[in-house]
Design a protein around this nucleic acid. Structure first.
Lengths: 150, 150
DNA sequence: AAAATATATTTAGTATACGAAATATATCTA
DNA sequence: TAGATATATTTCGTATACTAAATATATTTT
């Protein structure tokens, strides 16, 4: 495999894997009328309670502005609401609505369980190898990033 | 680490790695005024010659419609051109323009070299582990996909 | 306290990304 | 050969994703 193919193969494989994951989540959440990203955000909120926009960005690994857009659409659906913090008025807390808790949460839990079971199929050794490979790749890329700053 | 965290961690790590790669490519191609995806397409074309839209989709692992959009923007920049096939009029071949070959190709090669060198920094063992981890993850996800069809 | 600086979020603009529908052309079938 | 079916690409609508700029509020400095 040439150097060219190596780079492109890794990128394609990464995308392929993310697409599989996305597909699985998408299929699960579809029946609730929400997308995979929206489902991931709901998952975090319903497990750990109200979160700042910036906290959600950190957890999900995407930018504040993207989270803001996802919240916009979930708010329209009536699943989450924004609440301006009283301690620091710059901060916005996002939380699930009581409407969601009453109407959709039960269904959501079932979907969630089905999606979680995918990772659970893997053995501990497999998961370890997945993390090892990804961390190696991350190190290679981030080391290069530092070099480029010089 | 709980099952919930495990799933979200993997997704976040995958995204992080892809973002690093994207960042590196973006930084490189920026000076040419093209994006990372556009650069990847140019790389393929300039190494292997004219390609069908559908071939580019397969190589890059993205859909025809997305490739079509990327070609639109590269065409506006004057870097590629579309040519309807004479053998099969449904087919469109995409190729670099002579304008690109004369003006930008030299610069492009240098940028390309710099980006390729990133993967080359890694040892063979590291690359093998990366592929091993990614393939395990891919198998886990695709196995689940089949189960869901039942 | 007014100005400067810092922090948190949203908005605006651009580029992906997808699926479904539309278009165009090819090929097969009755 | 006309109609049905298949294939290739583009267009359209929606959802992400990013950065930079705008907005809002906090904190520090002078």
């Amino acid at each position: 495999m040439s150097e060219i193919d190596k780079g492109i193969s890794i990128v394609r494989l990464l995308k392929e894997v993310l697409q599989f994951i996305h597909k699985n989540a998408e299929n699960g959440f579809k029946e609730m009328g929400i997308t995979a990203s929206q489902g991931m955000l709901m998952k975090i909120l319903s497990h750990t309670g109200p979160k700042k926009v910036s906290e959600l960005s950190d957890i999900m690994g995407i930018s504040n502005s993207t989270v803001s857009g996802i919240i916009d659409r979930l708010e329209k659906r009536g699943f989450v609401e924004r609440k301006r913090s009283n301690e620091d008025r710059r901060v916005v807390y996002v939380d699930v609505t009581s409407e969601f808790k009453n109407d959709a949460k039960k269904n959501f839990k079932q979907v969630e369980k089905k999606i979680d079971s995918i990772v659970n199929q893997a053995t501990k050794e497999e998961i370890d190898k997945v993390f090892e490979g990804l961390n190696i790749l991350k190190d290679i890329m981030s080391k290069q990033n530092q070099d480029m700053d010089n």
